[in-house]
Amino acid sequence: MAVVTMREALNQALREEMLRDENVFLMGEEVAAYEGAYKVTKGLLAELGDKRVIDTPITELGFAGLGVGAAMAGLRPIIEFMTFNFSILATDQIINSAAKMLYMSGGQFKVPIVFRGPSGSAFQVSSQHSQAIESWFSYFPGLKVVMPSTPADAKGLLKSAIRDDDPVIFMEQERMYGNKGEVSDDVEFTIPLGVADIKREGTDATIVARSLMVPMALKAADVLEQQGVSCEVIDPRTIRPLDIETILKSVKKTNRVVIAEESHPYFGVSAEIGSQIMERAFDYLDASVRRVSGADVPMPYAKNLEELAIPGVDQIVAAVREVAYLD
């Protein structure tokens, strides 16, 4: 165990899995010589060489599709998007090719590929560079979607994603690369996909949070503890497939739930989780499911507006107080 940043934990996962399996290669913009726009791929070119760590032209649709083809032919590509904003250009290959290949080939062609990179809000980079699009990918059967919130989860989940035989969308959070935490250095350390983690136990209300919202939910839980409300914080970690059972179990215990996310509220992940809770635990609820989401607007540049667009600790606290009928 050592305390490392999210960035380092991801780097370890990449390195270990590339050393473990020579069919794994890493491709993307600035991943090799520049060592990653966010330095996640630091040292990999030097250690593994340019056959395995490959700089691409700015041509997202092309190299995403190339990755899918290489996966069909037996390799295990890791495709880095400099940010997930640019994956939007590659969605045709991710959705029409990667997600559906196994199915439409009647089970013949699996696509073991990881599409990874930073996602969500960054710092004041405005509408086209600051967006959380996990609900898009989560919509499609055939894709798996992972969003870690701690360095340990990042490492363990990325290793599982690379070993997984299906296309995995692995979304890191741009603001969280510097966050620190304890991480195992056992090369066999992995965390299974599709298993939620209880980040904090509590009895009075459940907060379901992912990615950037997990540390905020934990802070909110601290604040609420002072106010006499004990919160359980659940991080699904994998959005698809979703470990709804762990969430339901918590809701049945606390009878109140707030779902926090930085993405837009409409047709999003929180809508799905909320709906499943209503369908399966309605009788246990003492209050309606409450969502805390990013503002339903493109991300503005101005700092004061940006702050208003991204949910924070205060909003989570207020929402929990609301479902606990404290105000």
């Binding site: 004041q124 980079v125 405005s126 509408s127 086209q128 560079h129 503005p300 540049y301 101005a302 700092k303 004061n304 507006l305």
Partner: peptide, 16 residues
């Protein structure tokens, strides 16, 4: 500067 007097009212920033 991300100010209201900006050409895009501060919503776009350097890139927009």
């Amino acid at each position: 500067y991300g100010k209201a007097g900006g050409c895009s009212k501060g919503k776009g920033g350097s890139m927009h």
